Amino acid sequence: MFIGIDLGGTNIKGIIINKNGDVLKQHYIPTQDTGDGSWRENVKEMVIYLKDFLKEPILGIGLSAPGLPNEQNQCIAYLPNRLNGLENFMWGEYLGEATYILNDAHSALMAEVKFGVAKDKKNVVLLTLGTGVGGGILINGQLYQGLSQMAGHLGHISVNATDNNTSIVGMVGSLEYAIGNYSIEARTHGRFTSTWALVEAHRKGDYFATYTWLSSIQKLAIGISSISNALSPEMVVLAGGLTLADDALYEPLKTFMDLYEWRPGGKKTEIVQAYFGDMAGAIGAAAFVQSKLM
């Protein structure tokens, strides 16, 4: 049995899974980030609750969190200005169990690869489309974390070098700026405050909304095509809240991919909707620790 924890700014989500990925228990508690690091006690409370429910030994704990883990995946080494007390905190010592820490987007990838739509695939890219754009990369069946564990930050590739708007890491014309919900007011000159409102207006025939939405999807297709050229994955998995736009996303994306993707021999990169939703981080964290210990 394995415990998976997804540490978010608002809630802590926890699960117990067995080796087959069956979720035996899931639980939510508020993070309560008051700035003094006391939120870590809530993580311990979650672990105690899940262990008491199970009433038998666990093999390990996986923790999904924002930021960049250290090389051994023992802690989050870099996350400025959020969740005070997270950086360099050694969770294994604190929780008294073998504990592995993973970036939250990497956890979402692991959930899909181990138990979801990318099961049995060897080369996969996942993009999370939400407030920003995150991602993860699987190469030859292994999570690729790269130097400083920062691989997979695919929202910070550039899809328009002439656009001087920069992402949080300073990249001009980033994919994250092009489609992330955080930039929607700037991209629409204040006309829309959420991507959901933009998509609804597009569906109702608002020409400005349609122009803005399709421009964003065009840049997403350019980004995916660029990633495909660099990594040649078997599958690209799309996750996150924006994917709930369904056909309003996937139909124009298919059209733009037909324009931009290089397809030697007629082979297309398969683009699929993620299977896991709200609990993807916790499931992926548990899958990661399972891969480490079995």
Rank of each mutant, 00 (worst) to 15 (best):
L154W: 09
G155M: 13
H156E: 05
V159F: 04
N160A: 14
N160S: 14
T162K: 12
D163W: 05
N165Y: 13
T166A: 13
S167M: 04
V172R: 13
G173K: 02
S174R: 04
Y177I: 07
G180K: 05
N181K: 04
I184A: 06
A186R: 07
G190Q: 09
R191L: 04
S194F: 07
T195Y: 01
A197R: 01
V199E: 01
E200W: 00
G205D: 10
Y207A: 06
F208E: 15
F208W: 15
A209K: 08
A209Q: 05
T210D: 03
Y211W: 03
T212C: 05
S215A: 15
S216N: 02
I217T: 11
Q218N: 09
I222A: 12
I222E: 04
G223T: 06
G223Y: 06
I227V: 12
N229Q: 06
N229R: 06
P233E: 08
M235T: 10
M235K: 06
V236Q: 04
V237C: 00
G241Y: 13
L244K: 15
A245L: 07
A245F: 04
Y250D: 07
L253F: 13
K254F: 02
D258S: 04
D258F: 05
W262L: 15
R263W: 05
R263G: 07
R263P: 07
R263S: 13
T269S: 02
T269A: 10
I271N: 00
D278G: 00
M279A: 10
I283M: 02
I283Q: 01
I283T: 01
G284F: 10
F288A: 03
F288L: 05
F288S: 01
V289H: 05
S291A: 15
S291T: 12
S291F: 03
